[in-house]
Design a protein around this nucleic acid. Sequence first.
DNA 1: GATGAGTTATCGTTTCTGGCGATGGCTTTT
DNA 2: AAAAGCCATCGCCAGAAACGATAACTCATC
Lengths: 323, 323
Amino acid sequence: MDSAELRVFEAVARTGGMNRAAAELHTVQSNVSARVRALETELGCALFERHSRGVALTPSGERLLPYARRVAWLLADATRAARDDGQPGGPLTIGSLETTAALRLSPLFARYAAACPEVDLAIRPGTTAELIEAVLERRLEGAFVCGPVAHPSLIELKMFEEELAILAAPGLASIEAATRGGIARIIVLRAGCSYRQRLEALLARRGVAVPRLMEFGTLEAIFGCVSAGLGITLLPRALIGPVWRAGRVSLHPLPPEEAMVTTVFIHRREAHLSSALRAFLDHARASETAGEGIVSSDTSDLVKPLPDGAPLALNEANRRNGP
Amino acid sequence: MDSAELRVFEAVARTGGMNRAAAELHTVQSNVSARVRALETELGCALFERHSRGVALTPSGERLLPYARRVAWLLADATRAARDDGQPGGPLTIGSLETTAALRLSPLFARYAAACPEVDLAIRPGTTAELIEAVLERRLEGAFVCGPVAHPSLIELKMFEEELAILAAPGLASIEAATRGGIARIIVLRAGCSYRQRLEALLARRGVAVPRLMEFGTLEAIFGCVSAGLGITLLPRALIGPVWRAGRVSLHPLPPEEAMVTTVFIHRREAHLSSALRAFLDHARASETAGEGIVSSDTSDLVKPLPDGAPLALNEANRRNGP
DNA sequence: GATGAGTTATCGTTTCTGGCGATGGCTTTT
DNA sequence: AAAAGCCATCGCCAGAAACGATAACTCATC
């Protein structure tokens, strides 16, 4: 078995046809057909069922396909690992929750970009669920997400400890005042994201229903709407401090067990840790000691993985609670 | 990058020379040299330093080598996965602690061998540390070891809950009677193995020193020596029950926190779960419901992985406590 | 039913990679 | 100084891989 054969196989399986695979691989159909045939005879079992509209995977092919992908990933990773000479450089694509980026990462990114000018740093925002998926699919080298994640193929580093607080219209004395009548309108940054489920659960425990949900793409818009009394929201307290001091909103602390949330940095366990990413994590550690806001006492601490069956996609905790 | 090139690279790295690698790969030295050269130009960095006595890996080569190994493993696994048609067959090599094999596995193996005659089942005894290493190195598909193991690349299924007890010469009323004078001679199955560290720790907590250690390869020899008053040992209570009832030895229970030990079945997380192994685990589950001794209520339960940095070799807990 | 578009299989030809053997340069050992 | 062992390089060649054309087949449409 050869990685070149698997590359052809994977293209055929993905495109669903040998013609399409040939076009993608910059070769001719007869060649693809011959390669697939060679692989099938080598394995002694059919990998595709041939139809008039293309091909479909047999059970054997289904079993082989994930290996073909992993081999391709592994070879790409091997190339990067061998070429990585220890000098941070090249592209580094990292994901982050929007609130974390706004609150914690600006100074870190600025210092890192200054120290490692050869690195093309890119930050992509997203929800915890989206970011975990992107890291697993290797579209991101790592991401700041809401922990704990507990996926067996991810390494998880505690980075920040955030205190969340409820934000409501100015002049309201308490959460109860903001949820009078047992209903509340809540405002979130993105529909699937950012403390929404956490806020809903929190209100549900207090017997408050959430009939309406408003979604705004920017934090400033959320501040404006909360200030205008359109609803309440849940955000890191450090983030809303300035707005609160300006008197635009009222801030309502939560009990610690509901308020505290850990932000972790995740990256693939078995992937090559690029020099760019390593330098980034070193900077994060340095920022921590410099008191720039990283709270965890040891960034190399792993959060305890979940004890359960560790699904390959997302675990329930993140589907439910994540921002 | 190609798996064939990596295969050549790995052979050169392992044998430390292109001539030796050529001999191993059934080809000529010039070819090996050309393949390595091609890989180096493709990667843009040297992989070996050439010396008069052979070659040595450069840092780039060091980084590439583990990937070469993993690609080779992955391709082998891919072949097995594609060929595995769901009918259990072929070789199945499993490791087990000797006491577990003696106490729990005979009926399971017998039933499995009868149900799956196409499988060449092989059982290899060893200590927990040895067996974990063998599974990680793919010399074993799985193993029964003393849990918890908590290695990120191993899946761990609770199988049995054993109660250990101390075995001493007949007529002794208590452990204290067997350890009079604060010293005890202990008898173990194998030097690195089987509850030895556990027994020593247990005695140390009672202020008993262990000046002498005797090692015997078979359980029957141990029973004989204990019966003759040469020393004490620690074994699963169910295993020593018949000997005790025959009056050959005295049996001394331990408090639950010292007595209970979990036997788990481990196998590689990312490896293909062969039909033979799957059928074996199904049989184990069936044995459980049939009350043949499997205690865990759910064999699919994962034991909690360790929270720490997850070393690639063995974790400390297993070096210290394992049988 | 004929036709055309789409698919894969197969064949002969061409290209070129990978393997071979010989040689040479180098270092270490004898 | 000779021998042994190592790797680099060259020319050569076989065989695999790629190519192009064609055949066979299915399906949708006319």
